[in-house]
Design a protein around this nucleic acid. Structure first.
Lengths: 233, 233
DNA sequence: TCCCAAATTTAGGCTGGCGTAATTCTGGGA
DNA sequence: TCCCAGAATTACGCCAGCCTAAATTTGGGA
């Protein structure tokens, strides 16, 4: 009966679940209950309960004991949340001086409170950006998102040039660290070595004297790159 | 057990109640249950229930059947919400092109989601404003608020000059209307007449040809003014 | 002083969302 | 094919907040 000026019309919790499911979805397989539980830091039975409500609302398709998939309307709502999150992050960094490692939590709360109008005004003020500060593509107002086909740094062949295109916004520590290395979205570098058995990747970073830097495997897995055309010897 | 990055540490609902009570409080008398119920658009028994919780948390002092008063900590939290609300309103109008009649609802939601840091960054970007777009004073970070001693337009003596200083942000219709008259905070005018029995107040507004304008009693009650020194014949 | 209307509180219920404990299903290994 | 570990679900309970209906209190007028 209550109006709820939320503009997705769904509860905060529902919005969180939809976004989490969207982010966990891979084209092939449904998202498992336990994965959602971990992502949202709730107990698995809580997820079962919410999944039931979501599927009754037609937001997800539930295959018992198998997992869930977003329905069309679920995906639309999820992409709306993703757009909000990324525009807010971009706005905070560009207009209010936030560092890229500190915007995630703020955006996580604001995405539930902003109206469509505010988001569009922020987007306008930013010149309708296509990527957020971590390189993630911003879905369009109509819910289209660019599918990027990026390579983990750990998979870039030794000897090639690559450009950092995207990093998860989740881990501030990690973001601070890679920023301290001079790495940010758009920086190109050469991959000059990789040790086997999940050993570090070594890259050469541009600079007055180019700098070689070892990147641990876990980190190298989190850095998404474009392999650049011209190879370097 | 959950951390709650809310920074007041209270629930959305609690924040709403505290702010409402603050705004209904008058130095002398406690705030009645029914007044809170009306302000928040909930049923009186819901207020009784919440008041019980608030008083158990030490945020209000409850005098059964008489009403409630904010405690020190309750007042501090309420003023924090007021500061947030007013800074958000100011930010939206000054930096994102909102009109003064459309910021209230947006601020009403954002005030619960923003962090202290975001508020301070907004305030900084605005040059630490002292008043919001409707002329209401913005509490300082430490919780001090300027007490203004303003006169309703309906109480300004006929013949004097006055300046509009403050209007409630609650009614967009009213705000649009007075803006359409060319009235905004800071505009000075002369009170040239007032009809008895809650009749209209007539004012003379500055302009290429000064304009006379009748203001209904209800509206005249909502416009808070300074009486200016120099009288005019 | 008594009584009634209005305000308030209590009683009892509901929903969303979370938790734990117990149960059920699934799929891979022996 | 059987069995079991792990995943998922069901069963049940809790709390915040809201509601309506039924007491209860209060204060002002006759």
């Amino acid at each position: 009966m209550s109006a709820e000026a939320k503009s997705t019309g769904y509860s905060r919790s529902t919005e969180d679940y939809l976004k989490a499911i969207y982010e966990l979805e891979t084209p092939g397989s449904p998202v498992q209950t336990s994965a959602i539980a971990e992502a949202l830091d709730v107990a698995p039975p809580s997820v079962s309960g919410m999944v039931k409500r979501l599927s009754e609302s037609g937001l997800v398709e539930h295959m018992p004991y198998r997992g869930v998939r977003l329905s069309e309307s679920g995906r639309r709502a999820a992409l709306k949340m993703v757009r909000r999150h990324r525009i807010v992050e971009t706005y905070l960094t560009q207009k209010l001086g936030y560092d890229w490692d500190s915007v995630h939590d703020e955006a996580e709360r604001l995405e539930h409170a902003v109206s469509d109008e505010l988001i569009e005004r922020m987007a306008m003020a930013l010149g309708n950006p296509r990527y957020d500060p971590h390189g993630a593509p911003i879905p369009s107002r109509s819910g289209l998102i660019e599918e990027q086909d990026l390579l983990a740094l750990s998979d870039v062949p030794v000897g090639s040039m690559a450009e950092l295109r995207m990093v998860s916004d989740r881990d501030p520590e990690l973001l601070r660290y890679i920023a301290s290395l001079g790495l940010k979205v758009g920086v190109a570098f050469e991959v000059i070595g990789r040790q086997p058995f999940k050993g570090p990747v070594t890259i050469r970073l541009p600079g007055k004297p180019p700098r070689e830097q070892a990147i641990g495997h876990e980190l190298a897995d989190a850095l998404r790159c474009w392999e650049l055309e011209g190879e370097v010897g």
